[in-house]
Amino acid sequence: MDNTFHPLFYSFHFYLFGLIGIASALLFVTRKSPVAAALWLVNVMFCLAALYLMLDAQFIGAIQVLVYAGAIMVVFLFVVMLLNLGHPSELADIRGNGGRLAAGAVGLALLAEVAVLTRARFPAQLTPKAAAALAQVDQPGGVIAPIADALFREHLLAFELTSILLLTAIAGAVVLGRKRGAADAR
């Protein structure tokens, strides 16, 4: 593998995936059909995964596809199908023009403020640190090693707590999703 860094290649793809991501997000927000919206969201996630890879978070990129796009969005689609929401009669849910304008204005305001707040200038090029991380690929453990190191050493407690959280969520989802049966009538 060629470890040299080609800025143009990098930038082009960055912008490509970025624009596709934005476009997909816009489309996602404006679809009437929930299925269509879900699929556009999946697209956004794929773009983001690509960006993660480019930002030297390979593991994150992988699990973005596996977990987010592959599990969470699938659950969403399951529920959409389950509730049979594709009928046109239920699809008229986008607010009227006034609401859209207001929401757009608010969004722009939010954006402007975030832009104003992040006044710090970040370097446009990869820092030496980033370049070193890129070279991590050839190290033993590969690119996963730094993350694993941080996750299982420094943030072990958070990791364990997350597992408990998942357990709780499973239990909660099962309880909530249960159909009320004869056993509950007592």
Partner: peptide, 26 residues
């Protein structure tokens, strides 16, 4: 790429907020 990433993130976040405000399907 860092600045662009942050900007992209902000834009996506904003789109998400607009969506929350606009959509009425749960």
């Amino acid at each position: 790429m860092l600045a662009e990433s942050l900007l992209l993130s902000a834009v996506l976040f904003t789109i998400g907020v607009v969506g929350v405000l606009t959509r009425r399907n749960a």
